[in-house]
């Protein structure tokens, strides 16, 4: 157990959680939706970028990935938003939210992986 990783995750997650809270206050579940989708891109991007471009300290990679982006996205609120929409008599909204999160989450993570990998390889070649 590396204590530096935990401290880094806590610090980065503090900002990730506050960013998600702000999106939710501003745009309700649309904010959570876009936060999750953008987060999918960012996590896949950083994961594959760091994999190619190895010169980063572990505390920094886990801080950004597991800490900031991990806390910026949420699975529990995503499910609760579906419940709230169904209870509010909006099952179609709930279904669209559910399906578009699944589809766009995967597509954006896929794009993040491809772009992260390429950017990492490109930057490695230059030095």
């Amino acid at each position: 157990m590396k204590i530096s990783n935990y401290i880094s995750i806590a610090c980065f997650a503090f900002f990730g959680g506050m960013a998600r809270y702000s999106l939710n206050v501003q745009w309700s579940f649309y904010g959570t939706f876009w936060g999750n989708i953008i987060g999918c891109f960012l996590l896949a991007f950083f994961t594959y970028f760091f994999m190619e471009f190895k010169d980063f300290r572990q505390w920094l990679t886990v801080g950004i990935g597991t800490g900031f982006v991990g806390a910026f996205t949420t699975f529990s609120t995503f499910n609760l938003d579906i419940l709230k929409n169904i209870q509010a008599g909006l099952p179609l909204t709930a279904l669209i939210y559910f399906l578009s999160s699944i589809i766009f989450g995967f597509i954006f993570a896929f794009l993040g992986m491809r772009i992260g990998k390429n950017v990492g390889m490109l930057l490695r070649k230059e030095d």
Binding site: Y21, N36, G39, T74, S76, F106
Partner: peptide
């Protein structure tokens, strides 16, 4: 709710890691 619901549980669960893992399984 802000501390435990949005905060702890929001930070505990993750949508991005799940999707990155889905992409890894696909790959």
């Amino acid at each position: 709710y802000s501390l435990v619901g949005t905060g702890v549980l929001g930070g505990y669960t993750t949508f991005s890691t799940m999707n990155t893992e889905l992409v890894e399984l696909y790959k």
